[in-house]
Simulated scan of single mutants.
Amino acid sequence: MHHETPPLKAWLLLGLLALIWGSSFLLIKKGLLAFSPDQLAAIRIASAGFVLLPFILQRVKTVRARHWLKLISVGLVGSFIPAFLFAFAQTELPSGVTGVLNTFTPLATLIIGVVLFHQRAVAQQWIGVLIGLVGTTLLVTASASGAFEFNRYALLIIAATICYGLNLNLIKHHIHDLSALTITGVSLFLVAPPALAYLLLATPFTSQLATPEQWFSLSAILILGVVGTAMALVIFNTVVKMTDTTFTSSVTYLIPIVALVLGIIDGEPFFIQQALGLGAILGGVWIANKRKRQPFNTQR
Rank of each mutant, 00 (worst) to 15 (best):
166 L>H: 12
90 Q>S: 13
123 A>F: 13
109 T>D: 01
222 L>F: 14
95 S>I: 13
207 S>K: 12
210 A>W: 06
147 A>T: 12
52 L>D: 05
232 A>S: 10
250 S>I: 04
138 L>D: 00
63 V>C: 01
9 K>I: 13
182 T>L: 00
49 G>Y: 11
129 V>C: 02
297 N>G: 07
263 G>S: 05
136 T>N: 01
155 L>F: 08
261 V>E: 03
141 T>E: 06
135 G>H: 11
57 L>E: 05
47 S>N: 05
135 G>V: 12
133 L>K: 07
103 T>Q: 05
274 Q>D: 06
19 L>N: 08
180 A>R: 12
154 A>R: 12
189 F>L: 11
206 T>K: 04
62 T>G: 05
106 P>L: 11
3 H>K: 07
242 M>V: 09
133 L>V: 15
256 P>K: 09
28 I>L: 15
299 Q>C: 09
283 G>F: 08
261 V>K: 00
251 V>C: 01
108 A>T: 14
81 I>S: 00
133 L>P: 00
36 S>V: 07
20 I>M: 13
123 A>N: 11
64 R>N: 03
182 T>S: 03
184 T>Y: 05
14 L>H: 04
141 T>A: 01
87 A>D: 05
40 L>I: 14
52 L>N: 06
154 A>E: 07
170 L>Q: 14
125 Q>M: 00
90 Q>K: 13
64 R>P: 00
173 H>S: 05
182 T>V: 03
287 I>L: 03
261 V>L: 10
170 L>T: 15
91 T>A: 10
179 S>P: 00
204 P>H: 13
134 V>M: 06
189 F>T: 04
90 Q>Y: 14
200 L>V: 04
230 A>P: 03
96 G>H: 02
209 L>N: 04
237 N>S: 10
231 M>S: 09
242 M>H: 11
221 I>A: 11
118 H>Q: 13
197 A>W: 06
45 I>G: 03
184 T>L: 09
171 I>R: 04
87 A>C: 08
110 L>P: 02
213 E>S: 10
16 L>G: 11
151 N>T: 14
130 L>P: 00
258 V>K: 10
104 F>V: 15
284 G>V: 05
59 R>Y: 11
134 V>F: 13
99 G>C: 01
63 V>G: 01
91 T>R: 12
147 A>M: 09
207 S>F: 08
39 Q>K: 08
66 R>Y: 05
118 H>C: 12
124 Q>E: 12
215 W>N: 09
276 L>K: 10
210 A>P: 02
280 A>G: 10
226 V>G: 05
174 H>N: 13
257 I>W: 05
85 L>W: 02
179 S>T: 11
297 N>D: 07
287 I>C: 02
263 G>A: 04
294 Q>N: 08
72 I>H: 00
34 A>N: 08
78 G>D: 03
10 A>M: 01
256 P>Y: 07
109 T>H: 06
264 I>V: 12
25 F>D: 03
259 A>I: 07
13 L>W: 14
139 L>D: 03
131 I>N: 07
9 K>G: 09
168 L>R: 13
188 L>V: 15
141 T>Y: 12
227 V>Y: 07
104 F>Q: 12
141 T>P: 02
79 S>R: 10
11 W>C: 01
204 P>R: 13
118 H>V: 12
65 A>N: 10
248 T>S: 00
296 F>M: 09
294 Q>I: 14
94 P>L: 07
4 E>Q: 08
9 K>S: 09
168 L>G: 10
163 C>Q: 14
